[in-house]
């Protein structure tokens, strides 16, 4: 009876379920108990026999045929997938040439074309408008790039004239800035000779404006 525990341990030993101290205890017992040792040896032999039988390798009936069948299936698979691809393309074409589909496509094309033409017209119109604006601005913008010495002379001259009329420097600056934007280069020389001592601020300003509007 008391050997039941050790027999149980022997079975658990084969399943790697014994703790280390239990294994050590079993090893110690097997050294002294011939009965349990016989059971252990028998189980070990049987298990080895079982594993030995089960680990025998089966025979492949025909290895070359197996290899050939694998490669044939691969070739068939590649061919089939190529055919499926072609079929999908053919179906796609069939769908496109269906009468209802064709009518729908034609209408859609016309609508898109109309939208495109309207867009083109709008774009062309705005481009033309922009060109005109830029042409105007380019004439005006041209005068902003004044040679420095001309600018300096102009400023000095103008300041002198406006100082005499006790205009604030801010006001003078504003006048000059406005003149820079709208002035034509050819008129500067004219302006220089046009300003007279004693002219009022308004008359100077009006004369400058008139002169500088002239093309």
């Amino acid at each position: 009876m008391k050997h039941n525990k050790w027999i149980n341990y022997i079975h658990l030993l084969g399943s790697d379920e014994l703790e280390l101290r239990e294994q050590q205890a079993l090893n110690e017992h097997l050294k002294v108990c011939s009965g349990c040792r016989a059971v252990y040896e028998q189980l070990r032999l049987d298990w080895a026999g079982v594993i030995g039988e089960m680990t025998m390798s089966p025979h492949i009936p025909n290895p070359e045929a197996l290899t050939a069948s694998i490669l044939t299936r691969i070739e068939n698979m590649d061919t089939q997938s190529f055919k499926h691809q072609q079929l999908r393309v053919a179906k796609g074409f069939q769908l496109v040439f269906h009468p209802d589909i064709r009518l729908g496509l034609q209408i859609a094309t016309l609508v898109l074309l109309a939208v495109f033409l309207v867009e083109q017209y709008e774009v062309t119109k705005s481009v033309k408008r922009l060109e005109i604006q830029m042409h105007k601005q380019s004439n005006q913008a041209h005068v902003v790039i004044l040679p420095d010495r001309i600018k300096k002379r102009l400023l000095v001259n103008l300041k002198q004239q406006l100082d005499k009329h006790s205009l604030s420097s801010k006001r003078i600056e504003r006048v000059i800035n406005r003149l820079e934007i709208t002035a034509q280069p050819a008129d500067f020389w004219h302006l220089e000779s046009g300003a007279n001592e004693g002219d009022s601020e308004l008359s100077i300003f009006e004369r400058m404006k008139d002169n500088w509007r002239r093309p």
Binding site: S57, P58, I60, P63, L66, T67, I70, L71
Partner: peptide
């Protein structure tokens, strides 16, 4: 395939 078919079959 030839190298491993025996393993796979077994």
């Amino acid at each position: 395939v030839e190298r491993y078919q025996a393993t796979a079959f077994r």
